[in-house]
Design a binder for these strands. Structure first.
Lengths: 357, 357
DNA sequence: GGGCGCTATCAAACCGGTTTGCGCCCATGG
DNA sequence: CCATGGGCGCAAACCGGTTTGATAGCGCCC
């Protein structure tokens, strides 16, 4: 038996289609007695309005779109996305909206997805991983899609794009990490950044350099990673050398190379964990010989030994804020920039004063 | 300027709406010359058919639904989901379909999502994490949704549900792991399972017991975890005791308790990594004093030291297979059960013969 | 009692596609 | 020369809702 339609409900309740619609939307008053009859009929027939029909009539699809343009294994290991999506979902579900997700492999594919989104599939989109000279804001504007952008710094007011922005202050978190390290006595601190084409990665990198020079430490060593464990490990290899001059088989500390960093600030937890593991494998003790920090504060980081010092980014909160902002725009509110105060440094055992050799 | 409609295209091309539609669908032949005019007009107007209108007319929404009923932090750390979704997406995108994702917190919320799915939002759904006496197959059938189920064992033919199933042979992978451990000389092997309400977790647990008894090792110790790092750590605590009787500060091996397991088979990588970390923190050497295996083979596992022995589950392949099967059902094919041969044991340094004390 | 305003409802148009019965036109064959 | 048939395209119905101008019914007041 096919699904009941609004016509069936109207017939059973003895009213017209229009009245049923009004009873549900409340756009015009309906007599209490009539409303009861309609609801009863709808319940009897197990009727729920068809989203397809409603979408056509209202030209609102009732869902928003999200495109993830990263390699699947990065999405899988980086814990940001899942938590961000969960945050979005919590808000969207409350509003009766759906989330349409696409995972793509390259920018062209991503553009194609927005084209399809604009053809009556979603009402708006959330833009993640903004790059330098990103063409997507322009694209979605041309397509008539509402959008909200996620960034890691306060948007400049002179920016050409007038899209609403949800941002966190990533730079401060980096400053805090560097401060912690410097106060603990570190001087040779290295940074393993994310792909620098991402604005947020570049922001953190700049923040790292600024923090270092603020402490009079100019010789900041920076390696660009790509958020994978593999790149975290190879970055560590570059920074630490391929083997300790003197393995710790006998329990003594390895000789400290003059230019070997005593601390590394990684751009995410996965790279940090892989880097930590590598450091140990060449005989370095963490944190005695090398302090390590991550970024994202994945659930795993708290349960390592030593625990990984990281930055809790409030991914859920950012997802919620992004969804909320987008919903507001969809209901006609003016675009706004909202800050999410989600970043919080979590200090754990992986950060300690350097051992004095 | 609002989006062009099929009527605009028809007018510009000098034909009727119907002919435009036919030219695109190919459901009836259209003269070559006419077709060219239509396509040219469509291109001029940058017209793309509205999915909303098409959905109403064809009663096909062009998207499928996926509900994740797990805690956000578990989804975030467990790498299965992202890779599974990426696999789905690859197939769906090719077919011009979308994926509607929902993350929910409890079974009631999940049921509500399926109700909404059935109201013209998706054409079919993929069911993950099947539980004992799961009510979802029945629910989606009642709602008239097409569905495909993902499992970790061959479906019994006497099962009441006639839904198509995409399955992998998880039990064999567990048998292989246990075989590896036994051949390496282990006898006291423990298992940290996933939540046993999940059919796949129960399957693996049974497989573990069967493998042990096949080797004449009856005293299988099993702890139930919940896939989080926290539970992996506390499971390790239960199995290994809270501290090594003799710390390795002087480099000697800790005294082996008579009943301490020499190997632990974890149900996923995150728990394994947390467990490994705990073991080390109480002075046990991995793999010398304790061998450890995981499940899922996350990208991180390959880049630890020692590398984590795990089971590569072919999550992408399973996603692809699930999407493909669902698409087939949607186009009218008979429900089928397909096996995905994705499980492959990846041996790394965390598995070795027990040290003879 | 007639005019007025208000409320509750109806009927019809509309959203933008798909589907199908029908008719036109031209070529072909008897 | 006329009947037949096939290739093309048109017009209209339809999908299941929403929206709105019109109307019926009612009470109220002057």
């Amino acid at each position: 038996m096919p699904r009941a339609t609004i016509g069936d409900v109207a017939r059973v309740a003895g009213v017209s289609k229009g009245t049923v619609s009004l009873a549900y939307s409340g756009n015009r008053p309906v007599a209490e007695e009539t409303r009861r009859r309609i609801f009863a009929a709808a319940e009897d027939l197990r009727w729920t309005p068809s989203q397809s029909a409603r979408a056509l009539a209202t030209s609102r699809t009732g869902s928003i779109g999200l495109v993830l343009n990263r390699r699947p294994d990065v999405i899988a290991t980086d814990t940001f996305f899942s938590r961000f999506i969960a945050g979005c979902e919590a808000v969207l579900a409350e509003a009766g909206m759906g989330l349409m997700l696409h995972v793509v492999g390259d920018p062209d594919a991503e553009a194609a997805v927005y084209e399809r989104f604009a053809a009556g599939r979603v009402d708006g989109v959330i833009l993640l991983d903004v790059e330098q000279d990103d063409t997507r804001p322009e694209l979605v504007r041309d397509l008539g899609l509402s959008a909200v952008v996620l960034t890691g710094e306060q948007p400049r007011t002179d920016t050409s794009s007038d899209l609403p922005v949800v941002w966190t202050d990533d730079a401060s978190a980096i400053h805090e990490l560097v401060d912690l390290l410097v106060h603990a006595g570190h001087e040779r601190i290295a940074h393993v950044a994310g792909p620098l084409r991402y604005v947020h990665a570049a922001t953190r990198r700049r923040a790292f350099e600024a923090a270092m020079s603020r402490h009079g430490l100019e010789e900041a060593r920076i390696v660009e990673g790509d958020f994978t464990a593999a790149s975290g490990r190879s970055a560590a290899e570059q920074l630490l050398g391929s083997a300790a001059p003197c393995p710790t088989a006998d329990g003594t500390a390895p000789i400290t190379l003059p230019d070997r960093p005593t601390a590394i600030v990684f751009a995410n937890d996965v790279m940090a964990i892989a880097g930590l593991s590598y450091a140990r494998s060449i005989g370095l003790r963490v944190p005695d010989d090398l302090s390590i920090t991550g970024f994202d504060d994945s659930e795993l980081s708290a349960h390592l030994s030593p625990g990984l010092t990281s930055v809790s980014t409030g991914a859920e909160a950012r997802g919620e804020a992004a969804a909320r902002t987008l919903l507001a725009v969809l209901t006609g509110a003016a675009p706004q920039c909202v800050e999410v105060e989600g970043n919080r440094v979590v200090r754990r055992g992986s950060l300690a004063p350097p051992s004095t050799v």
